[in-house]
Amino acid sequence: MTASRHQAVHAPATGGSATDAPSPPVASDRGDVRWLEELFRANSSGVYTIARRVLHNDADSEDVTQASFIRAFVARSSLRDADRARPWLLRIAYREAVAVLRRRRDLPTDPAVLPLRHDTGPGPEDCLLAADVAGRVRRAVDALPPALAAAVILRDLQGLPMTEVAEVLGTGLSAAKMRVHRARTLLKVALHADDRVA
């Protein structure tokens, strides 16, 4: 079980007054527990995908995924519109992931200015996998700065409207559009350059 490892990332990502140790739910919270289980089943992969693009590491991404659902459960009363659980949850997850990234590396506060990663470039085995389109897309997204990767995943993979992308990223609408556009432009170059080389 990852409970102890998970504690390392459970500190509040949003500042504020989140409770560190949630009190156990009482019996009347049974509906809330069901809600959490359904939320998890519908969104665990989506949350993990966002965390993985920010953190580039399976264990930390699992921890952040778990921490996000714990935080969501603790903060469930702040979700006013049940239909908007997904962007609300993804916002929690994105903030958790960025908080872990900052703690891990003591990096600048704006993930948009974080450096591009260089350890995900094509290796010898990638040539053999050139036909693996999904793998190419994944590596190209992994090479984006975290904020751009998150933006393009939220819009083009998870299909959130641009207004919700802005909400999740904690930016204005035009900044969110700009991040999506920059991400797409970088991906376009990466993916179509691959085509020409292959």
Binding site: M1, T2, A3, H6, L36, E37, F40, R41, S44, S45, G46, Y48, T49, R52, E62, T65, Q66, F69, I70, F73, V133, A134, V137, R138, V141, V152, I153, D156, L157, Q158, G159, L187, L191
Partner: peptide, 22 residues
């Protein structure tokens, strides 16, 4: 292409282990 990639799909056993931990 990004839409077709579809993101990470957590294996069921990993997902269940994580939910249990949560």
């Amino acid at each position: 292409l990004v839409a077709e990639w579809g993101g990470e799909a957590l294996p069921t056993e990993v997902s269940q282990r994580m939910l249990a931990a949560v």
